[in-house]
Amino acid sequence: MNRHRVCRADEVASNAMKPVAMGRATILLTRLPSGEIKAVGSRCPHQGANLEYGCLTGHAHSDQPNVLLMDRPGQILRCPWHGFEFDLCSGESVADQGKLRLRRFDVEIENGDVFIVM
């Protein structure tokens, strides 16, 4: 298992996707409202849009037509092209679980630095 230092933890903000280089690939980092940092692949599994320009939002839910509720703020990433929703915690497509999934990477924080574990 390899660890790669990619940036300092205080460079990773909430409500933003921070691109970092991993060899020839790019990984995106974001900070959840809980403070936890998540790392995902930079390309949407649907048609390859650059998720750096995606929208960080919450989980829209409801059991009653015409009543819109939102929970889990900052935990859903929407693709900048088609708006497909991905759960940053599981990587799963919200609308189509098991079919489309973000590539996720394990993150470790040590002495204020962010490491990607592969």
Partner: peptide, 18 residues
């Protein structure tokens, strides 16, 4: 409809399946 749902589910989250 599946394509529309994947990209627009946020407007109709009371729909729980494709």
């Amino acid at each position: 409809m599946d394509r529309e749902y994947r990209q627009g589910r946020v407007e109709v989250p009371w729909v729980k399946k494709l």
